[in-house]
Simulated assay, not measured.
Amino acid sequence: MKKNITLILFIALFSSASAQILTRNENWPNASWTVSGVYTPAALVFNPTVDNKFKYDAALAIPLGGAATIFIESPVFSLKPAFDGGEKAFRMDVFLSFQTLAANVLFFEYWNADSGTWVLPPDGTAPAATQGSYTNCTNTLNDISLDFSTFSTNQLLNFRYRFGINDAGGQIAGFCMNSPVLNSFSCMPPTNLTVTNIGTSNATLDWTSSGTNFEIEYGLQGFTLGTGMFQSTNTHPAGIAGLNAGATYDFYVRDNCSNSQAVKSAWAGPQSFTTVSLGLIEQTLKGFKLYPNPTKGIISMESEKALNEVKIFNLAGQELVNVKPNKLNTSIDLSSLSSGFYFLKVSTDEDSGTYKILKE
Results as ranks from 00 to 15, higher is better:
V195R: 05
T196D: 03
F77P: 01
G132F: 07
D84T: 14
A19R: 04
M92G: 12
G116S: 12
S258H: 11
G317L: 10
I216K: 03
S300T: 09
S115T: 15
A168Q: 11
V38F: 07
L225P: 06
P48T: 00
K296V: 14
Y252L: 13
V38C: 08
N234R: 02
S272L: 13
D206W: 01
V119A: 05
V195Q: 06
L79P: 05
F77K: 05
I72F: 08
K3I: 15
P121T: 13
E73K: 02
Y249C: 12
W118L: 11
S265G: 13
F341C: 06
S184E: 02
I172G: 05
T224S: 13
I144D: 06
S300K: 04
D93H: 09
N166F: 12
N166S: 14
R160C: 10
S336I: 13
S149C: 13
A262V: 14
M188R: 06
Q261E: 14
K286F: 12
G164W: 09
F95C: 09
T248N: 12
G228I: 10
D84M: 14
N136E: 11
A12E: 11
N293L: 11
Q20Y: 08
K3G: 15
T200P: 07
A19P: 01
A128Y: 07
K359M: 04
I165E: 02
T191M: 06
L157R: 02
F95K: 05
T212A: 01
G297S: 13
A17Y: 07
L307I: 15
I8T: 06
Y342E: 05
F163G: 06
A58R: 04
P122W: 10
A129Q: 10
